[in-house]
Amino acid sequence: MNHAVKPALLDRASTYLLALAVVVFAVGQYLAFKAPPDAQQGYLVRILYVHVGAAWVAYLAFFVAMLFAVLYLWKQHPAYDRLSSASAEIGLVFMLLTLFGGMMWARPTWGIFWTWEPRLTTSAILTAFYVGYFLLRHAIEDPEFRAKAAAAAAILGVVNIPINYMSVYWWRSIHQTATVDLINRKTHMDPEMLVAMLVNLLAINLFFVAFVRLKGRLAALEAAREERYEQ
C-alpha cells in the first residue's frame, strides 16, 4: 500500500451523487411548498413530503443491510460487513427521523404525540431492534465473530419491515393506511402533491446511496488504520 497517497474520503461518484441529491432535494422542497394545502389539515400535510421518504429509506436501508449481510456470509470479505453496518446505521438515523417527524405530525392532527397503536408499536420495536444491533456490534471484540453475529441480526431484522408496513392493514390503528397504496394499487392524492412527494422521495434515495458509500469508505479507512497500528 502506498502511504504517500492520501486516500480520498469522497470518491468522484459519491461527490456527484451528493451534489445531485442536494439539487433534487431543493427542487422537491420547492414543489412541496408550491403544492396546495390539504382540504382537511391545511399546510400540516407538508410533513408528509419528508415523513414518507424517511420511512421508505429506513426500510430500504435495513433491506440493503440484509443483502450485504448475506454477501458477507457468502464471500467472507470484511468490506461487505462494513457496508451492511453502514446501511443499518443510516437506516436507524432515518427511522429516528421518521419517528420524530411522525410525532410532530401526530400532535396537531391526531391530538397526541405518541400512542401504543400497531403502526407505532411495531415502529418502536423496529427501532429498538437496530439499536440492539449496534450494541451487539460493540459488545463483540473479535472482528470475525462480530461480523457473523451482526450479519445474522441484520438478516433477522428485515422480518420487522413487512410487519411494520402491513400493520395498518392487519390491525385497527389510528395511523392512516398508505396513500400510495401498493397493496390495492391506488393513489389517494392530489397529482401536484404526488409529484412533490415523489421528487422528495428520489432525493432522499440519492442521499441514502451517497451516505452508504461515504460511510462504507470511512469504515474501510478506519479498519486500515487499526491494522497499521496492530502491526
Binding site: P36, P37, D38, Q40, W110, H188, M193
Partner: peptide, 23 residues
C-alpha cells in the same frame, strides 16, 4: 382523551383553495 383518525386521502381544497383560516 379525544384522538382523530384522519384518512389517507390528501386533496387540494375545492375551487382554487382555502387558506388554513378558512379551513
Amino acid at each position: 382523551n379525544l384522538l382523530i383518525k384522519h384518512s389517507e386521502t390528501y386533496q387540494a381544497p375545492p375551487e382554487g383553495g382555502y387558506t388554513p383560516e378558512e379551513v
